[in-house]
Design a protein around this nucleic acid. Sequence first.
DNA 1: ACCGTAGGAGAACGCTCGTTCTCGCGTCAA
DNA 2: TTGACGCGAGAACGAGCGTTCTCCTACGGT
Lengths: 183, 183
Amino acid sequence: MDSAVARERALDAAEELFYGRGVQSVGMDDVRGTSGVSLKRLYQLFPAKEQLVEAYLERRDARWRGQLAAYVEGREEPEERILAVFDWLGAWFGEPGFRGCAWLNAYGELGATSERVAAQVRSHKRAFREYLASLVAAAGLPGALAGQLFLLAEGAMVTAGVTGSAEPAAEAREAARRLLDTG
Amino acid sequence: MDSAVARERALDAAEELFYGRGVQSVGMDDVRGTSGVSLKRLYQLFPAKEQLVEAYLERRDARWRGQLAAYVEGREEPEERILAVFDWLGAWFGEPGFRGCAWLNAYGELGATSERVAAQVRSHKRAFREYLASLVAAAGLPGALAGQLFLLAEGAMVTAGVTGSAEPAAEAREAARRLLDTG
DNA sequence: ACCGTAGGAGAACGCTCGTTCTCGCGTCAA
DNA sequence: TTGACGCGAGAACGAGCGTTCTCCTACGGT
């Protein structure tokens, strides 16, 4: 098996397991079992579990933000684009297997012990916030709005994760709409 | 040492350690060292670590909601009371040792493995949401506002926890004020 | 004084799990 | 053909930790 293929399979398994059951309750042996990549190979590709965790978060970050941006691109009006973020969140929350924001979960689990993971979470959230800020700027709205929309989105993610419901997205969208209308 | 005293000391230590470093990275031996309560006593009071965790979250829940309510009671105007929630959050975020919302952290760490902890987190969040709803109702505002304020508060907690800044409280307060004004 | 009991200190046990090692097999170059 | 090498399967190692056990001390009732 090609090294690149093994890496992808390992990351696929890591993502499925870490996201679904948490990082700490998943052993490297579980990753081996799910991925079909032997322990020896796993440790060649990722010299320690923490690096597998980092690679998992990094790959997911790229995909998550890419899919969000692609969805938002589908709308024409600048303000519609902002609201589309919440529509996309709602669709995400409703997906089978949704278990909250992977980064917030990882932060709760590892933030206190792994500075590298904590930094990655902050970086992901900063990127998301800046993306919102770019949408706000494109709509010619005041910059302070971005932070407020960001908080609504974060609150929706965390609440959807804890309750398992997709409704927070609609609530956040409605609040965002009202903030836009009065901004 | 009295049994009740030992229980309080154990919970004090558990809270300091679990909140500050996460549950999984704190051993029962750490709790013993910090509390001065022997392992034997600890296991008499809490037959398993999970029950110590539950007791920690439960006691903190009572105190957290009590302090919030006491602070809010200090304001007269119904709408001021709603905004006071965010002032209180800001003061909390600024406290030394603040490390985010204890329940969200616990959920990220244990939500996937301990149904009892997950239920406790949901229960705490539901109580907070209902408290907000009661403030909204007392102000004669539409009920849908409560969910939006809740999302702002959750977003602020999670963002303050990850970034270590108290500013999200002010941002959330400003968003809340605007939602109130147009509600 | 004496015995029963509670409690503390800390060793011990058993399990999990990250990480490494062993062994055996297949492959490919010379 | 052979020998070096890569790899997979799985055992092994070692640390951490939840939980229990041992042993010793102190004290309270008779």
